[in-house]
Amino acid sequence: MATRQSVDDLMQKCEDVIRSAQEQYLEASHQEHYNDDQYTTALQSLEEAFNDLAVMANSANSQQREQLHRMRLQLQQAQNNMILLRH
């Protein structure tokens, strides 16, 4: 079973990844092709966090799984926004 601390740590990591991705999204929407490497790295970080959540969900209790699912939806939304941005 996943410990509360491990879930909290992962949630914090995901929030940081989302915040970073949002910053890259805003920069890309203003500067177009200037920071493609950082933009791609942010997308990769979102994907890694998404995968980490899926792994953690396997050992989580029902309450933790719900919390992880909500975070997974946020990650997907950030990822979708970045993919759909025409930069």
Score class of each variant (00 low, 15 high):
Ala57Ser: 14
Val55Gly: 02
Ser45Ile: 12
Asn51Ser: 06
Arg65Asp: 09
Glu66Pro: 03
Leu73Gly: 01
Gln76Gly: 12
Gln74Val: 05
Arg70Ala: 07
Gln74Thr: 07
Phe50Leu: 12
Gln38Thr: 06
Arg72Asp: 14
Gln44Pro: 01
Glu48Trp: 02
Gln38Val: 09
Glu66Ala: 02
Asn61Trp: 12
Met71Thr: 09
Ala78Tyr: 06
Leu68Lys: 08
Gln77Gly: 04
Ala49Phe: 04
Met71Lys: 01
Ala49His: 03
Thr41Gly: 08
Thr40His: 05
Ser62Trp: 13
Leu43Val: 04
Leu53Cys: 05
Gln77Ile: 02
Glu66Cys: 05
Glu48Cys: 00
Met56Pro: 13
Glu47Thr: 13
Ser59His: 10
Arg65Thr: 10
Ser62Lys: 09
Asn80Trp: 13
Phe50His: 04
Met71Asn: 04
Tyr39Thr: 04
Tyr39Arg: 03
Ala78Ile: 12
Asp37Ala: 04
Met82Glu: 02
Gln63Tyr: 07
Ala57Lys: 14
Val55Glu: 15
Leu68Asp: 06
Gln64Gly: 02
Glu48Ala: 05
Gln64Ser: 01
Ala42Cys: 06
Asn80Lys: 02
Glu66Lys: 12
Leu73Met: 11
Thr40Asn: 06
Gln67Pro: 10
Met82Arg: 00
Asn51Met: 09
Gln64Glu: 12
Asn81Glu: 13
Gln38Ala: 11
Ala49Lys: 03
Thr41His: 03
Asn81Thr: 05
Gln76Leu: 15
Gln67Ser: 09
